[in-house]
Amino acid sequence: MSGALSLPARRTPPGVFVALVLTLAIGWIVVTVDGGRLFSVPTTVSLLHVAAGLGLVAVGQTLVVIGGSLDLSVAYVVSLSTLVAAETMAGDDGALLPAIGLTLAVSAAIGLVNGLLVTTARINPFIATVGVGLLLKGYLDNGYDGPAGKTAPALVQSLGYQRVGPVPLSFLLLLAVAAAAWFVLARTRFGHHLFAVGGDPEVARLSGVRGSRVLVTAHVLCALCAGLAGVYLASRLGAGAPRVGTEGLYDLESIAAVVLGGTALAGGRGGVVGTVGGVLLLASIDAIFNQLEVDVFFKQVIRGVIIIAAVAVYARRAMRKAS
């Protein structure tokens, strides 16, 4: 609970990995008793694919949450990105790089708007990003009824379906992005400033940190990650999908993953390693339920309970450590 003073404690691996191992162990036993196989190649591959999509969004979300903000527009950024990517490519491998570039540029611009609304216009991040989300929703609802565009075959074959053993390329991409984010947070000045701004904006300001610039950068990076998730989803789906982000609940689930990973919603504390753990935990639960062929709605109920319970367990540990 002591915020900025506990910097070294941040390095210890978050308890989410304990939860992950326990979940997988229990899940494995239950699935085996049920007559299925949890660690077969297809299940593992699909688990990692789920983790890749959510993970890309969640890593970006981690940055803004550490900065004391949050981004609820990511689900729409994801949807929009699949469309920008797939429509620009139009099934042509030659347009692959320009399309990805354009997608990331559009995402970054949205992130910039989010960041400026939060800092310069001083709108509460919750409202600002919901507002931007609504803007994008209107554009998507107005322009698209269903899938549009066609992803370049080269991207579908590589990012969409290529894998190294049981590990999809997309999951390696997630690991690379997470590693980059880790480096930025732990080793760069921007990272330290971000923790400072999230911990106490006033103290950060008095010690000469330009909070606005730091927070705007975090928002741009977050939107870039969501854009990357959109490119990945376009590679999986083969086309742009105007509702893929909202139907996947990427906004709320990414925040859940961040918090499961031990990052404080209030800002100033946390890290991407935990977030990847949180994402893997959510994806594992998903995989286990799929193996057990649990009703989708029941799955959602259990998911809600698990998210609350897991965060409650952390809160207890944090309290004990503090006392």
Binding site: L252, I255, A256, V259, L265, A266, F297, F298, K299, Q300, V301, I302, R303, G304, V305, I307, I308, V311, A312, A315, R316, A318, M319
Partner: peptide
């Protein structure tokens, strides 16, 4: 239980809808 209300009520949202 000291769960942030954002998470508590988000969980409740998932639970109720499901």
């Amino acid at each position: 239980l000291r769960v942030p209300s954002f998470i508590t009520t988000l969980g409740m949202f998932l639970i109720l809808v499901g």
